[in-house]
Design a protein around this nucleic acid. Sequence first.
DNA 1: TAGATGATTGTTAAC
DNA 2: GTTAACAATCATCTA
Length: 203
Amino acid sequence: MTWHQNFTIPRKPGLQFFSFSTFLGALIIPRAHNQKTHPFLQQYQTLSKNPHTSLSPFLSPTAMPKASTVAKPADSRLKRKGAGTGTKQSKKASKDPNRPKRPPSAFFVFMSEFRETFKKENPNNKSVAVVGKAGGKEWKSLSTADKAPYVERAEKLKEEYEKTLRAYNIGLAEGKTPSEEEGSDKSKSEVNDDDEDDDEDDE
DNA sequence: TAGATGATTGTTAAC
DNA sequence: GTTAACAATCATCTA
């Protein structure tokens, strides 16, 4: 599988999909027809001005995102966050804001620390994408033993989440939210909460 | 001004 | 079993 086999342009309403060869052709055909810009390129130029679309495949084959990322074009994120229709979307749309947030995975626990470190080493960086990439790379370089503390913390958070979720479900059954019952506020970062808990434990 | 975007991995939940 | 959604982060941009 080469990168261009996975080549698609993020779908936008009213925008067609184009193959890689179409893209190359678009570069050549206008010259052959003495045109300034092929219609496809016009669409590409429009698209490229829209920051809500990912054009990294155009710009850097080496920076080709993994298949799962490519398979989720920009508008899928729009759908995901939006209040549209459909199974998963309706799930999101009907989601109770009081429902406990999912606990961070070991990777996310690691990332919370890594962001701090990265920020100190790269104070000028403002891109979450750069931090994400660097964090992912760093995470993969860690051994199982290195990951163990993060896994342990993630498991601890997961247990807390399951407790909270149980309380939430009980509250739902009784017609009230856990936050009303316990006054719990899980809107804060669970990772940070854990850090605070650890601090409290240490004291 | 609210909300989407980017980029990552692991987990959850819906099918 | 498969796969989309989502968990955190925040400067930047659009509608």
